[in-house]
Each structure stands twice: as structure tokens, then as C-alpha cells.
């Protein structure tokens, strides 16, 4: 019975305090880069600070996760510990869902209420008086004040690169599931192959999205500064892309660990956590594809 095993309570650890210093220095650096460049001051010192913080964070991530992996492989973790990790990862993903919910909520509010009201719909006549001649539309290419916020010449349609990216990500959800089944069946070569394929799909996705962003900036004048369409577009796809990058890093670590001989057929929660995260990223993309690109 799991309950009869002692629950593993780790001894003192330096990683939390290293992580605090790392995160604090990194974010203070980022904030001062922004503030200094807004005020036209030199940002060199801020960049140095940022890089030092990022190095500390990298050191912490290797050290802390390495610590956990060593403990896990030493057999210190009971089934109960495993359940703690599962609850932890599940609720972390839920918090990420809520983070995206804020941006999706903003998008829906803007599209359902704000833009039509600015166009004079309902009893909001006052906003129609602010910008006479503004007519509401989505995608919004003509902003209420085009001088402050010049709109994009056009936006990115769903059936080109975004469709391709959808296919890439959905396929990657299947490939990682195949890899997981192979791991559970003990076919390690097959696991390496399909996990590698997942990672390859992820990298292609990121390149396609990078290309799409360049196209948007260079050819369409679709930028962060081009009004609410650009704001919501880049906020949602950008944070999603950042999460794909994070998920890819997780998958890379899992691939390296499999090559090093980690994981057994019935003990591989690290892999499963990365797979959960990957599915989450995939589901967010489907939401994006529908609500940002198609509708």
C-alpha cells in the first residue's frame, strides 16, 4: 500500500532561493530594459542584468530538475509522491488555461461589444460621436483613429500557413501518443523515433509561425501597433508560440532522457507531464485557429 510508505520530504535545498534570485534579477532586468529604452536611456546595464538573471535561471532549472530526476531514479518517490506530481502538473496546466482564457475573453469582448459599440451600435451613441465615420468591421483594418493606429492592409487568412500549422500540431499530438504507447510497451527505439518526429513537427511549426510573423510585419503592415486586431492577434498567437517553444524544450529534455536510458514502462511521469503539456498547447491552437483565423 502506498499509504504505508513514508512520504519523501526533501532535506534543505538551495534551489528555491537560487530560483528567487534568478527570477528577480531577470525580471528586474527586463523591466529596466523597457523603462530605459522608453526614456531614451542606455539599456546596456539592464541587458547585462537580464543575461545574468537568465544564466542563474538556466543553472537553477538544470540543477533543480536534475535533483528531482536523481531522487526519482534512486527510488525515493512513492506512488503517493507520484500523485502529488500529477496533481501539481494538472493544476499548473489549469492555471495556463486561465491565462489564455483572459486573452480569449478580451478578444470576444472586443469583437462582440467594443468594436460594434464604437461603430454606433446600441445606445452607445456617444462613442459614435467620438470618431465620426468609423464603421465597425472584423477584421478591423480601419481603426477609429487611423493616425494614431494605422491599420493593417490586410490580415492573414486561415487556409494558408495557419491551416498548415494546424495540421502540423494535430499530427504532433498523434505522434506523441504513439511514442507514449511505445514507451509503455517497452519499445524504446520506436519511442525515440516518434518523439523525435513530434519534436521535428514542433520545430517546423515554430519556423512557419516565424515566417508568418515576418510576412505580417513586412508585407501586410500587421503589427502590434496596428490597432486592436494586431494587438489580439499577436498577443494570442505570440503567447501560444512561446508555449510551443516551452513545450518543445520539455520534449527535447524527454528525448535526451530517453537516450540516456531514463524511464521505465510503468514509471515515466516526466514524459507524461510533457505530453499533457503538449496536448494543452495543441488544444489552445485549435481555439486560436477557430477564433482568431477562421471566424
Amino acid at each position: 500500500m502506498a499509504e504505508n510508505q513514508t512520504y519523501y520530504v526533501p532535506e534543505q535545498s538551495k534551489w528555491p532561493i537560487v530560483a528567487t534570485v534568478g527570477l528577480g534579477v531577470t525580471l528586474y532586468g527586463v523591466a529596466s530594459i523597457m523603462v530605459n529604452s522608453n526614456q531614451g536611456e542606455s539599456t546596456t546595464a539592464s541587458w547585462v542584468m537580464f543575461f545574468i538573471g537568465a544564466l542563474i535561471m538556466a543553472y537553477m532549472l538544470f540543477g533543480w530538475f536534475g535533483n528531482v530526476i536523481r531522487e526519482s531514479r534512486a527510488g525515493l518517490y512513492s506512488d503517493q509522491m507520484d500523485r502529488s506530481f500529477r496533481w501539481g502538473m494538472s493544476w499548473f496546466i489549469f492555471s495556463e488555461v486561465m491565462f489564455f482564457a483572459a486573452f480569449f475573453g478580451a478578444l470576444f469582448y472586443v469583437r462582440v461589444f467594443v468594436v460594434p459599440w464604437l461603430g454606433g451600435e446600441g445606445d452607445k451613441g456617444s462613442s459614435a460621436m467620438l470618431w465620426e465615420g468609423f464603421s465597425s468591421a472584423w477584421p478591423l483594418v480601419q481603426n477609429p483613429n487611423p493616425e494614431a493606429y494605422p491599420g493593417p492592409s490586410e490580415v492573414i487568412g486561415p487556409w494558408g500557413l495557419p491551416l498548415m500549422n494546424t495540421i502540423l500540431l494535430v499530427t504532433s499530438s498523434f505522434t506523441i501518443t504513439i511514442a507514449h504507447h511505445a514507451l509503455k510497451a517497452g519499445h524504446r527505439a520506436k519511442t525515440k523515433l516518434w518523439l523525435g518526429a513530434t519534436l521535428a513537427l514542433a520545430v517546423v511549426f515554430l519556423f512557419v509561425q516565424g515566417y508568418e510573423y515576418m510576412h505580417a510585419y513586412q508585407d501586410l503592415d500587421l503589427t502590434l501597433q496596428s490597432g486592436i486586431y494586431g494587438s489580439t492577434f499577436f498577443m494570442l498567437t505570440g503567447f501560444h508560440g512561446a508555449h510551443v517553444l516551452l513545450g518543445s524544450l520539455m520534449l527535447t529534455v524527454m528525448l535526451v532522457r530517453i537516450f540516456k536510458g531514463h524511464f521505465t514502462a510503468d514509471n515515466h511521469f516526466g514524459f507524461e507531464a510533457a505530453a499533457w503539456y503538449w496536448h494543452f498547447v495543441d488544444v489552445v491552437w485549435l481555439g486560436l485557429f477557430v477564433f482568431v483565423y477562421i471566424i
Partner: peptide
Amino acid sequence: PVLAGVVTMMLMDINFGTSFFDASGGGD
């Protein structure tokens, strides 16, 4: 996370020229 989302939108409006909270760009 929703609080994190709203301050991130502020950060973008302040530093990167987005218009989440600026009606002249279609925000509110």
C-alpha cells in the same frame, strides 16, 4: 493567471504600442 493576463496587456500597451485599452485603436 487572469490578473497576470491583464497586467500583461497593460505592459504591451505601455511598452509595445498595442491598443487593448485605447479606444482610438479599437480597444476599450
